[in-house]
Write a protein that binds this DNA or RNA. Structure first.
Lengths: 140, 140
DNA sequence: TCTAGGGTCTGTAGCTGGTACAGGCTCAAG
DNA sequence: CTTGAGCCTGTACCAGCTACAGACCCTAGA
């Protein structure tokens, strides 16, 4: 029977957390740093969210999953909120992020190569000589 | 003429930083968290390093370059310092680190695939419709 | 009606791996 | 003797959260 006569179902912070899978505290954090808007409050000072906040938070979470930094998320949201975002602008942001993702992959691949080739030389025996230690100790 | 009669050349923190390329403050940080040993001090309380510290710091820096966390570095150093490290033990550490590197690569590759395929659909035009925004807004 | 338990509110501390700066000493060159 | 560089300490800051203390508030059961 609750909310039966109310036009908009009010979500509390815990509801929003459950709906999105976001950590409860992270929601407040996002509000503090300005990526989530300050929601209206109930008479008892509880945050009162609605469906629009669910969408916003999901947007942020998806962007984070794609590795966008919170700064980049802010930029994306600013474009969306401005209502005047163009595909070109968004593409620009996405492409520069993509470049940094690729750079990270290259870094890690380099590490992977060095590490795996070094480990491959290990005997794995109960002896003190170890190619990994040698590589780290090397007097270059 | 300086240090001419001294058996061991003493290095100050700045010297160590220059020799290794490590940031000056980072050296103190490494000491605080216990991966660099507390060096002896001069009468005026200056840290007095020697060649062994250069080796130690280089070891740490190489391990960091290979993506080992400082916790893992601590473990490696403990094995080395124990003097009883075995190739098998070190190989174990290196392999588990290698696994996490590979996991990170996989994560990033997934991101790269999603991102690049989405961006590829962009017209890049001056229009508000954008596949990237759509992907982030999607009502799944 | 009282009470126990959950939820929420705030501010703040902790994590990793550093980096930077203030305020005070000390040292070497000119 | 002065001036600038280097060093000392503690502390604050960055991202991106996460967690906890202490104070409210709300609801269900006895």
């Amino acid at each position: 029977m609750k909310n039966h006569h109310r036009s908009v179902k009010v979500l509390r912070r815990g509801d929003l957390a459950k709906l999105t899978g976001c950590n409860l505290e992270t929601i407040r954090y996002y509000e503090n740093i300005g990526v989530m808007p300050e929601p209206p409050r109930t008479s008892k000072n509880y945050r009162a969210y609605d469906e629009s906040h669910v969408g916003r938070l999901r947007f942020i979470m998806r962007a984070r999953e794609l590795g966008f930094t919170l700064d980049e998320v802010r930029d994306l949201l600013a474009l969306v909120d401005g209502g005047v975002q163009t595909c070109g602008e968004v593409q620009g942001l996405a492409n520069s992020h993509l470049a940094s993702v690729r750079a990270k992959i290259d870094d890690l691949k380099h590490i992977e190569r060095v590490l795996s080739s070094t480990v491959a030389q290990c005997t794995g025996d109960d002896v003190p000589e170890c190619p990994v230690i040698d590589a780290l100790t090397e007097v270059t």
